[in-house]
């Protein structure tokens, strides 16, 4: 009951927020937070719960964005159709990618995904006739107000959260975490590990592609070095999750909010040194909050509960 009340409060606050912050700049920051929250939540399903750390999610973000962009560039179709087609393209591509890369474990999977992400970036730079190369694609947006974008981004985040939430409460969640904790043990318990990794990968790629398509429509300009970026998309998604809380439902959203707000402060206050400050932040987070803010808070809360009750609640579904 208490949980339902909290959820309703959060929803109302989220809906009213842009009516309080009316300046376009503030609304832009809110939209950016929601985009990263959606991306982080989607990555978390594969990376945090199923333990398959992808350093190449930019590939799916970029594919979604470029699907929308190319519809407008070559076929004169509204890029809004990209919201339908973009995630489909990302999901379709994720199937062979997953089947190939899931042969590898741990850091080797991470490296293979990193290489794949970079391959997509280079191909989209060099395939000039189809993608317009490094010049990128620009569209003229029909909607210029921020408010509609805000609610779309909110919907996107809600979708990401709902899919993740539903999956992890079911058999899928138990299987994902089993695979992360010990793949051999999982396999010997009758869990088809490759198939379930794919079950985590598909929705993750779907949401990431959808967010990419939304990004194209919102920002109205993309180029391969931005949407397929290793540092600014792939690594950033992981950071958002690690900052907020690996394998927690709300962690990525918390991470996105803190990260976007901090980087705005860094950018406006420090100028050139902002990336340096950011790098230092990355190191500190990993060294001192290895499971993210929500993850560590959870641990602390659990410890307190145990002291009070002398027992501990079942702890699979955190946050």
């Amino acid at each position: 009951m208490k949980k339902v009340l909290i959820n309703i409060t959060v929803a109302i606050v989220a809906i009213l927020l842009p009516l309080v912050f009316r300046a376009p700049y503030h609304q832009h920051i809110l939209i950016t937070i929601l985009i990263w929250a959606a991306l982080g939540t989607a990555w978390n399903l594969l990376g945090g719960y199923a333990g398959q750390v992808s350093f190449g999610h930019a590939a799916f973000f970029g594919l979604g964005a470029y699907t929308a962009g190319i519809l407008a560039l070559h076929y004169n179709i509204s890029p809004w159709w990209g919201l339908l087609l973009g995630p489909l393209v990302s999901t379709l591509i994720s199937i062979p990618v997953g089947l190939i890369c899931f042969r590898l474990r741990g850091p080797y999977f991470a490296l293979a995904m990193l290489a794949l992400g970079e391959i997509f970036r280079l191909v989209f730079i060099n395939w000039v006739t189809f993608t317009n190369g490094a010049k990128g694609i620009m569209i003229i947006p029909k909607i210029t107000m921020k408010l509609p974008y805000y609610y779309m981004a909110l919907g996107l985040f809600f979708l990401s959260l709902t899919i993740t939430g539903l999956l992890i409460k079911s058999r899928f969640g138990y299987y994902f975490i089993s695979i992360r904790e010990d793949q051999d043990a999982a396999e010997s318990l009758g869990i088809p590990t490759t198939r379930y990794k794919l079950f985590a990968f598909l929705p993750s790629a779907f949401i990431t592609g959808l967010t990419g398509a939304f990004y194209m429509n919102y920002i109205a300009f993309i180029d391969p070095n931005v949407v397929f970026s290793l540092a600014n998309v792939s690594v950033m998604i992981i950071l958002v999750v690690m900052l907020g809380g690996v394998a927690t439902l709300w962690g990525p959203a918390v991470g996105a909010a803190i990260y976007i707000l901090l980087s705005e402060v860094f950018r406006t206050r420090m100028g050139a040194a902002s990336v340096l400050a950011f790098g230092i932040l990355v190191c500190l987070v990993i060294m001192f909050l290895p499971n993210g803010i929500v993850g560590e808070l959870d641990g602390l809360r659990k410890m307190a509960l145990r002291k009070m009750n002398g027992g501990e609640k079942s702890g699979l579904l955190r946050g």
């Binding site: 750390v53 350093f55 991470a110 992360r180 690690m242 290895p290 499971n291 993850g295």
Partner: peptide
């Protein structure tokens, strides 16, 4: 939770 955080 994720040993890969050393990569990061």
């Amino acid at each position: 939770i994720l040993p890969e955080n050393q990569v990061l």
